[in-house]
């Protein structure tokens, strides 16, 4: 009798890795919860620096938010292609997702630069510190996601991935969707609701 101790589907019927990603995302909820609470506490404290309404460019950020949302769609297409074992399409959609993500991060870099020029530095005020920390953390999450997507593409091309391909794509997808959902919350709370 053969028993491979790993990679098997156990008690819950969900694989270890996928369930592990779910647990990790549960933990991430509290990470962002803490950061968002900090921002909400401090967003009105500007000590002479610019206030949120003076610097936010809502149309711009709406567009970049839309781009990020679309990347969730392309991620879904990638997962579905992976399930159909279509390597070419999987690669294509993963790459598009990564590009959309990169566009979003690029937008964020542009936005940060613009805000900085308008006088909102990291140390300017409590608003500044907590704004850059919250959105920066999110940006880092997107960036990590992009790295994972591009690595996936690289690995799929070399076709030397341990484990089931479709599952790995799906798990990276879980992370990606989570990061998108967090952005929707951040966008609403930070940009749309006035102080």
């Amino acid at each position: 009798m053969t028993d491979v101790a790993h990679g098997h589907v156990g008690g819950t019927g969900i694989s270890n890795v996928k369930l592990g990603m779910w647990a990790f995302l549960g933990s991430e909820c509290l990470l962002f919860g803490g950061l968002i609470s900090t921002y909400m506490l401090y967003r009105g404290r500007v000590t002479g620096g610019p206030r949120p309404s003076q610097i936010f460019d809502i149309p711009f950020t709406s567009v970049s938010s839309f781009v990020l949302l679309m990347s969730s769609l392309t991620m879904v297409l990638a997962v579905s292609a992976a399930h159909k074992d279509d390597d070419r399409k999987t690669n294509l959609w993963l790459t598009v997702t990564a590009l959309l993500g990169t566009t979003f991060v690029g937008g964020q870099v542009y936005e940060f630069t613009a805000f900085y020029k308008e006088g909102l530095g990291f140390s300017t005020s409590l608003f500044g510190s907590s704004f850059y920390t919250l959105t920066g953390f999110h940006g880092v999450h997107v960036t990590v996601g992009i790295i994972m997507l591009m690595s996936l593409v690289g690995i799929l091309t070399r076709s030397s991935m341990p484990g089931k391909k479709a599952e790995v794509v799906e798990i990276v997808g879980l992370y990606w969707h989570f990061v998108d959902i967090v952005w929707i919350i951040i966008f609403t709370l930070v940009y749309l609701i006035p102080v």
């Binding site: 900090t38 506490l41 401090y42 404290r45 000590t47 990291f122 140390s123 005020s125 409590l126 500044g128 510190s129 907590s130 920390t133």
Partner: peptide, 17 residues
């Protein structure tokens, strides 16, 4: 961030709580 990068989170002078 406060200690290494100059954030204000706990800086009472900046109105921190």
């Amino acid at each position: 961030f406060q200690r290494n990068f100059g954030a204000r989170f706990f800086d009472v002078a900046a109105g921190a709580d």
